[in-house]
Design a protein around this nucleic acid. Sequence first.
DNA 1: TTCTTAATGTAACTAGAGGTACGAAAAAGC
DNA 2: GCTTTTTCGTACCTCTAGTTACATTAAGAA
Lengths: 210, 210
Amino acid sequence: MNENPTPTRGRPKTLDRDQILQTALMAYWSSGPTNISISDICSMTGASKPGVYREFGSDDGLKKSVLETYHDLAVQPLIDILERDQSTDETTDALIGFMTQDREQLGIPQGCLFVMMRAHVQHFGPSTCEALQDVRCDLFGAYETWIERSKSHGEFADIPTDIAALFIDAQHGGAMRMQREGVPNDTIASVLGTAFRVLVSNERSGARIN
Amino acid sequence: MNENPTPTRGRPKTLDRDQILQTALMAYWSSGPTNISISDICSMTGASKPGVYREFGSDDGLKKSVLETYHDLAVQPLIDILERDQSTDETTDALIGFMTQDREQLGIPQGCLFVMMRAHVQHFGPSTCEALQDVRCDLFGAYETWIERSKSHGEFADIPTDIAALFIDAQHGGAMRMQREGVPNDTIASVLGTAFRVLVSNERSGARIN
DNA sequence: TTCTTAATGTAACTAGAGGTACGAAAAAGC
DNA sequence: GCTTTTTCGTACCTCTAGTTACATTAAGAA
């Protein structure tokens, strides 16, 4: 709304918003969003506590902003896969590949911050919960349009769209939890492969029923 | 080890261990295990803080004991279903029925304390983590023996046992999370029904291969 | 130079967590 | 009745979380 576009007067700003967001993001992601305090983030970034509060308003505000950053960073790529114009099989393979990347090699923490935060809703304030809902809606929207598109190509099993979306979400959540618990990525990939088998239309593997 | 079997001397004990365990169990279950403090439990039960500490040693000790209680109360029934001598279809139906019971009607909180606690490991001490591992092992053991038994009856799909166990565990976790998030039970049952379809041997719906 | 504006960070505050020191209380034994 | 044993609970401690009051600093404008 009232973004100050380079205010000419007054002491210049030194607080690095992005640095704080990035640092908080990685800390929440690797140590759990409820195990990192504002003070932790301050000592990690060198920012002062009032500085952080001036920028984000509250713990709730910071978490909300971090979640939005995470959306762009890690949820959107998943949505992008769903929006790519390829066969259902290719998409499920891409999804599995995305979820079971070698995180250590990429310098990215295990699991998914969004999934973790959903399991900790009870600890968050209203803004964060709202942001959580927003991400959930985005993701489910992408699941559902992908499912509908696959269905229109006759490449999807006879499962109601909302049920299928919940199913995929459950697999994603399960995979991310397994990764956090230390299950090897190829094992997770096997589980996902097994799961996603129900999604593809079974007309191709046998007799055509309809 | 040194259980005092009715010590004759000294002031008689008034602290009700079971009441504390039951109260803590329900509080953790409905509000989340990391949202209930020792003080909360004290004011709910009327016990004093030192009393609780004398009985359980620490927060960690209490959580561990509560988890053991939860095992007997809510995990064992699930294991019992797996150990019943019935067809694979009957068992999956029973599992789905068990997971999607109307909790409000039963006066039981939504979701599963074990699943919740797994998502919060970072907050727990060593004893609780150990207990968590124990429950996990028990459950996976039950999954795997059931899977093996179903396979020996030719009623199970061609999926490695460990993968299938992880798959079932993921569905369970997903169902419990959905329930917590307010998804209706019959919707959850549909998702589970879709998921468990991959488990049954597909030899019955077509040509026998072996 | 002084005034105004807008940012800065030290040093506090409050609330609640886990945890405990210690004296009082209630029973059995002598 | 006095001692011993065992448990009891009030009142504290420490630590850390989130949060803020307020004096200070750095710039442009007058």
